[in-house]
Design a protein around this nucleic acid. Structure first.
Length: 351
DNA sequence: AAATCCGACAACCGCATCGGA
DNA sequence: TTCCGATGCGGTTGTCGGATT
C-alpha cells in the first residue's frame, strides 16, 4: 500500500482513527535494523513461518512495517543467503542473463542460489553501470554489450580458469596458453601481429574488471594478486604495431573485396570520433585466429557456463563466425569489438 | 590528523499484480 | 465485478567505512 493511498484512506477516516494511525506511524521504526530486532524477527519466523508480513509486523512486537520485515528477512536474515563477493561464475551468469532479460532482477536471482535480487541489482548499478558511465555510453547500448561480450566476459572466464588451474590439475592453464602462443607464432608470417595468450587477454589488468576485489577500494590488493602486469590496449601503439598497408580490405582478397567503413559503422554506434586505427590492424586473420585459440584455452571454463560447448564463444562472445572465421569476417562485429577494447583501454585504472 | 571522496550495500518507496471477500 | 489488503518487483536513497588528498 502506497503512502498516497494511505493518505487518501486517512482522509476518509474519523478523528479517532486518524489519531490512531498517526500514532502508529510515529511509532514505526525506520533505518538500520538492530540485533534485537533481527532476533525478534528470526524467532517469530522460526515459530510461525514466513509470510503474512503485516500480521507478523503487528504480532511480533517489531515496530516495523510488514514490508520492512519481509525485506529484512529475504535480503539478510534468511539462512540460505550467501554472503561475500560474487564469484566470477556468478558475475558471468548475471551478465549473460541480464543481456537476455534486462532488469529482471528477481528472475536473474532465481538462477543464482543464495543471492538476492537486491544484491544483483546493486552489483549491476555499482559495477556494470559505472563502466557504462565512464564510457559515456548507455549500459544497454550495442557497443557496451559488445564490450561486455568481447572483453569483460572473457576476462571473467580467464579468472575462472586461473582459479581452476590453481586448485587442480596439470597442465596449468598458463602453460596451455603459452603453448597456444607458440603454435600461433610459428604458423603465421612475421607480419602477423603477435596478439595471443596474455596479450589477447590484455584487457587492462585492473581497469576492466567488475569483480568486487578490483574496485577502487580493493585495487591495491587486486593488483598485488595479478601474476604479471599486462599492457592495456591504450598502452599498445596500434598505429605502429599493427598497421598493415593495403587499405581496409577485410577479406584478404585484394581490391574489390569486402571493405570496411569503420567511421560509418562507429557513427551508427554513436561513437563517431573514436579513432580505432586502420581496420586491418585489428581484424587480420592472425589476430582473430589467435583470439580463437586463446579462447580455446579457456574451453573448460566455457563448458561450465554453457550447454552449447565451444559454439558458445563463437556465438555469444564474438558474434558468430564473424570474428573467428578467416574467410567470413563480419566488419560490424569486429569493429564494435575493437571499439569496445579501445574504449576499455581508455577507461583508466581503478575499476 | 582532518576533510573529502567514493564504493558498497542495506533499506525505503512507489507501483503493479494477485487473490480473496 | 469491484474493492482492498498482501505481496513482489524495480528504482532510488541513505549510511557507513575505507581510501585518498
Amino acid at each position: 500500500m502506497s503512502r498516497r493511498k494511505g493518505a487518501a484512506a486517512a482522509g476518509g477516516a474519523g478523528p479517532m482513527a486518524m489519531a490512531a494511525m498517526e500514532e502508529e506511524a510515529a511509532e514505526l521504526r525506520r533505518g538500520p535494523w538492530t540485533l534485537e530486532e533481527d532476533n525478534l524477527l528470526m524467532s517469530y519466523i522460526a515459530c510461525h513461518g514466513e509470510g503474512r508480513w503485516n500480521l507478523l509486523a503487528r504480532c511480533s512486537g517489531l515496530k516495523r512495517t510488514g514490508k520492512s520485515c519481509r525485506l529484512r528477512w529475504l535480503n539478510y536474515l534468511k539462512p540460505d543467503i550467501k554472503r561475500g563477493n560474487l564469484t566470477a561464475e556468478e558475475q558471468l551468469v548475471i551478465l549473460e542473463l541480464h543481456a537476455k532479460w534486462g532488469n529482471r532482477w528477481s528472475r536473474i536471482a532465481q538462477h543464482l542460489p543464495g543471492r538476492t535480487d537486491n544484491e544483483i541489482k546493486n552489483y549491476w548499478r555499482t559495477r556494470v553501470q559505472k563502466q557504462a558511465r565512464q564510457l559515456k555510453v548507455d549500459a544497454n547500448s550495442a557497443v557496451f554489450r559488445d564490450a561486455v561480450r568481447c572483453y569483460w566476459m572473457p576476462r571473467l572466464l580467464d579468472k575462472m580458469s586461473m582459479a581452476a588451474a590453481s586448485t587442480a590439475v596439470p597442465p596449468p592453464l598458463l602453460e596451455q596458453k603459452q603453448n597456444c602462443h607458440g603454435v600461433m607464432s610459428s604458423s603465421h608470417s612475421q607480419q602477423s601481429p603477435a596478439i595471443c595468450g596474455d596479450q589477447l587477454g590484455c584487457y587492462p589488468a585492473a581497469s576492466f574488471d567488475p569483480s568486487p576485489s578490483a574496485s577502487t577500494s580493493g585495487s591495491t590488493a587486486a593488483a598485488a594478486l595479478q601474476p604479471a602486469p599486462v599492457p592495456c590496449f591504450s598502452e599498445l601503439n596500434w598505429e605502429d604495431q599493427y598497421y598493415y598497408p593495403g587499405g581496409g580490405d577485410l577479406d584478404g582478397g585484394g581490391a574489390g573485396g569486402l571493405e570496411l567503413d569503420s567511421a560509418a559503422l562507429l557513427g551508427s554506434l554513436g561513437l563517431d570520433g573514436l579513432d580505432l586505427g586502420p581496420a586491418e590492424s585489428y581484424i587480420p586473420d592472425a589476430t582473430l585466429l589467435d583470439y580463437l585459440n586463446y579462447s580455446s584455452c579457456t574451453a573448460n571454463a566455457m563448458n561450465m557456463m554453457t550447454t552449447n560447448g565451444g559454439n558458445y564463444y563463437n556465438n555469444i562472445y564474438c558474434g558468430g563466425d564473424a570474428m573467428v572465421d578467416g574467410d567470413h569476417h563480419d566488419p560490424t562485429t569486429a569493429t564494435t569489438c575493437h571499439a569496445a577494447r579501445k574504449l576499455a583501454g581508455e577507461w583508466g585504472g581503478g575499476i
